[in-house]
C-alpha cells in the first residue's frame, strides 16, 4: 500500500449526500477478476452520457460536460469533496480502487459509511471527516469559481485551507499509523500468530462444533 503522509492537491466537488458505491463503480465493472483498470469507469453513469457497452469496452465514450470530474478546471484533481454518508451501500472495494486508480488520494466528507471507510484505509485512500461547516465553506469556494487547493498533513492531522487557515482532524490512531507507514494489515496480524493459535485452541475446546469438517 502506498503510504500517505502529506498530500497537496486540487479539490473536485461532488455536491451530493449518500454517494453510494454503485454510483462510484457500477456493477457491470465488477466482473473483472483484477484489482486494476477501474479508473476509467469511476462514476461511470454520471461521467458519460452514453451507457457502457460491454461488447465494445474500449469504444470512445461521450463525457457528460455537466459532471465536475469532466471539467477542465478540475483536471488532475486528487481530493474529492462530497457530502454526508459517502460510500454507503455495497461492500465492493472496487469503489476504493476506482477512486485511487483515477488519481484520488483523499475524500473529504462530513461522514462515511463504515465498510467504505474501512476499505479506503486498506488502499491508501484517506477518508477525511471534516465538520459540515468546513465542508460547506469548501463547496462555497468551489461554487464561487475558484479552484481550491488543499494540503493535508496526516502526520500533524491538519488541513491547510487556501487562505492559509488550518483545520485539525483526527484519524483512528491504528489506521493513521498504517497509512503513514504504508503497512500491510496481514503482515501486522501475522505477528500475533501466537495469540491467534492460543485463542483458536481454547475456542475449539469450548465450541468444538465450530471446527467440524465441512463435507459438502
Amino acid at each position: 500500500m502506498e503510504a500517505f503522509r502529506v498530500h497537496s492537491g486540487l479539490v473536485v466537488p461532488l455536491d451530493r449526500a449518500n454517494v453510494d458505491t454503485d454510483l462510484i463503480i457500477p456493477k457491470q465493472f465488477l466482473k473483472s477478476i483484477k484489482r486494476t483498470g477501474f479508473g476509467p469507469n469511476l462514476f461511470d453513469e454520471l461521467r458519460y452520457l452514453d451507457p457502457f457497452d460491454q461488447a465494445a469496452p474500449s469504444a470512445v465514450r461521450q463525457p457528460n460536460p455537466e459532471f465536475s470530474l469532466n471539467a477542465p478546471k478540475y483536471a488532475g484533481a486528487s481530493i474529492l469533496l462530497s457530502r454526508e454518508n459517502f460510500g454507503c451501500g455495497s461492500s465492493r472495494e472496487h469503489a476504493v480502487w476506482a477512486l485511487v486508480q483515477f488519481g484520488i488520494r483523499c475524500v473529504i466528507a462530513p461522514s462515511f459509511a463504515d465498510i467504505f471507510k474501512n476499505n479506503a484505509f486498506k488502499s491508501g485512500l484517506l477518508p477525511l471527516e471534516l465538520d459540515e461547516a468546513v465542508v460547506d465553506s469548501l463547496f462555497q469556494q468551489s461554487a464561487d469559481g475558484d479552484v481550491v487547493n488543499l494540503t493535508i498533513d496526516l502526520t500533524s492531522q491538519q488541513v491547510t485551507l487556501p487562505d492559509g487557515a488550518q483545520v485539525n482532524f483526527t484519524v483512528d490512531p491504528f489506521r493513521r499509523n498504517c497509512l503513514l507507514e504504508g503497512l500491510d494489515d496481514i503482515g501486522i496480524t501475522l505477528q500475533r500468530e501466537d495469540a491467534i493459535t492460543a485463542f483458536e485452541q481454547s475456542h475449539q475446546r469450548t465450541q468444538p462444533w465450530l471446527f467440524n469438517e465441512v463435507n459438502l
Partner: peptide, 14 residues
C-alpha cells in the same frame, strides 16, 4: 460484510 482486502486477511489469518 467486508471488503476484498479483508477477505484476503480472513483467509490468511482467520
Amino acid at each position: 460484510g467486508i471488503g476484498t482486502s479483508e477477505v484476503e486477511h480472513v483467509l490468511a489469518t482467520q
